[in-house]
Design a protein around this nucleic acid. Structure first.
Lengths: 140, 140
DNA sequence: TCGTTTACTTGAGTGCATCAAGGATCAGTG
DNA sequence: CACTGATCCTTGATGCACTCAAGTAAACGA
């Protein structure tokens, strides 16, 4: 997403702050991915392969169509970051796993995406707890 | 954005809460747009036309290429939500403005996108102020 | 007036996303 | 075992977002 999610005319300071946070977060995520020549979607999928898993599991977790995952994984495979091995227990299924290079790129991405880390780092430990509690409450 | 922006392995509760917030926010934005048969980008542009303005101004504010705005505006125009009038002061430029129907749809979108409102609404006024202050501090 | 800059559009190319349809395999039942 | 139906994934088609390169038209400045 290049275009921001908002603002609708914000009626309160808190809403505006939420929007700013989301906007900056999304842009930072996109920028970190771009540094490694990945799309946000590719970085997202790569980041969820700490263990090998099936396409369907990815699609469900990410809330999108399986065919979408197929395409993204095909591109990651073409980049040499991921493999699709047959699943010995179920020959319909395929297990997606990061290659060593995929591990490296994923690690570099985690390093490049400093936004959440540094944002939280600006707060004292007590403030971090406060923020967590407030966000959890706001999320309902 | 259908796929979420994260998580990279989160190292703190606060980071995880931030991620959850961003994810839920983005999905809610997308869902509200979809209710009105708009893409997130279309809803975004439509929401920034409280006054008529040029394509270039939109592109700069949204941080994307002018040709991207052209396409989105063309589609909004085809939907009857927006007009592109010539700018009498500068015949290179065109002023984009919402039509009455565009106003209506935009208002309905603002109503449908309840996430920020309801999230903030779960907090007391003091908590809202706290949250605002914490987010502002975290944003640096 | 002439060259440069500005504002926007067009065209090509890539990727994300969804839907519809299909092939292969699995699993349960008769 | 053979069927039937569900499951896992891929393929194909389509639309939108996004970017870059190139082009048109108008404004601006020397």
């Amino acid at each position: 997403m290049a275009l921001p999610s908002g603002p609708v005319t914000t009626s309160s300071e808190a809403e505006a702050a939420l929007f700013d946070l989301v906007d900056v977060y999304d842009r930072a995520y996109e920028a970190a991915a771009a540094e490694l020549s990945l799309s946000p979607a590719q970085a997202c999928v790569l980041g969820r392969l700490d263990e090998r898993r099936g396409m369907g599991a990815l699609a469900e977790e990410l809330g999108c169509d399986a065919s979408n995952i197929t395409q993204i994984v095909v591109r990651l495979e073409a980049l040499g970051l991921v493999t699709r091995e047959p699943n010995p227990r179920d020959r319909r299924a395929r297990l997606v796993a990061r290659t060593p290079r995929g591990d490296e790129i994923n690690h570099r991405f985690a390093t490049a995406f400093t936004f959440a880390r540094t944002a939280v780092g600006r707060l004292s430990p007590e403030e971090q707890d406060q923020l967590t509690a407030l966000l959890r409450k706001a999320l309902g």
